[in-house]
Design a protein around this nucleic acid. Structure first.
Lengths: 194, 194
DNA sequence: GGGAAAATTTTACAAATGATAAAAAATGAG
DNA sequence: CTCATTTTTTATCATTTGTAAAATTTTCCC
């Protein structure tokens, strides 16, 4: 799904995770509402246990944490990705991250208290939740391994390959932090590979 | 569970992931068999789609990949952890990693073809599978964030805190690689904090 | 226990990355 | 469009980390 950038509707988003029978899907959609927020809005807070997760219909967001006086961006997501505090969702604890919207966003908000109840009562939704976690896991593992195996230059080139649009839509300071390097280092890399 | 090192039985291992009603647990245990392998055994292969995952009753193992002529260790696990090729388990594709046993091991082998069938037919097992993926996800995310936020020295100290026994049981070359640094760097860190 | 092999530490030097500051370019509000 | 602000690039120097090789320590097999 390279450079993917279409407007996603909720059925497509849910089906991409795990196809649900109609009755289960309708049940799940009862706990989902469409919302819009403007660029700059802080959607999730590190000091709070969050009870919602958000599927991105349109827009870009980033999760970041404060280390001393500098921000570290450790996640950037766009259309068809999920804004979530894993610590809140999985362990019911405060997360590490604030999440800030980098563009005006259209989102689908899913209440996770409702979702937990559905998991206990609907096997299809339980398997949807299983696939959701599994797919997030693969993505996270890939980033961790990439971090260990590839140099910063290789990681930047991979991002350029997979999501060329992100590099245009997100300022380079955030991209650099996401790649685990300084903005100055990223500038050097960009100058070299031209 | 700091420095945890008890012998785990299968009921304890399964319950720690998600408590199952007796009938579901018995169903799941039908697909699990106890196995033993000696130190040095290669349990999983990078070039193969694996159909088993292994819970560690006793022992230590590592997952590693070859970059050029050097091995990179990106996972080390001990009692109560799971040896798994996520790529095989989740995406039915070849993984990145070989898995080598670093001690004589007692393992519980779970057939994942059976497991997939159980997911479709038993809601409790589906939720067990969901919790399993979620807990692996939290661990992987924590490592990724630690990588981004902490220095190598801080990561070594954290490992020393969380799993002092691992540092005694696993040779430092593997620990260094797991922490994302060279063995020489780790030696320098160890010399400094003494 | 002795000796060979493997693992770890130390040293010296090279390369990569970071910090800081300043210049250049891009963006956005009026 | 213009000016102020923000973002990105460039330059310099300091620090960290890597590479290679030698020295030391530990492990393990006979």
């Amino acid at each position: 799904m390279k450079g993917y950038n279409k407007l996603m509707n909720i059925d497509l988003i849910l089906d991409n995770i795990y196809p649900l029978p109609d009755t289960s899907k309708e049940l799940l959609k009862k706990s989902i509402t469409a919302v819009k927020y403007r660029k700059g809005h802080i959607l999730l807070r590190a000091d709070k246990i969050e009870n919602n997760i958000y599927f991105i219909k349109k827009g870009v967001a980033r999760a970041y944490s404060n280390k001393g006086n500098t921000e570290i961006t450790f996640w950037i997501g766009k259309e068809d990705e999920t804004i979530i505090s894993m610590k809140s969702y999985i362990a019911n604890q405060k997360g590490y991250e604030d999440v800030e919207l980098l563009e005006d966003c259209e989102l689908y908000e899913l209440n996770t208290t409702d979702l937990q109840r559905l998991f206990e009562n609907d096997i299809h939704i339980a398997n949807w939740g299983r696939r959701f976690a599994e797919k997030e896991l693969i993505k996270t593992e890939e980033r961790l391994i990439s971090r260990q195996v590839r140099t910063a230059t290789e990681r930047y080139k991979a991002l350029l390959d997979d999501s060329p649009d992100l590099i245009k839509r997100v300022q380079l300071g955030h991209i650099a932090s996401y790649l685990g390097i300084t903005q100055v280092s990223l500038s050097r890399i960009r100058a070299e590979i031209k």
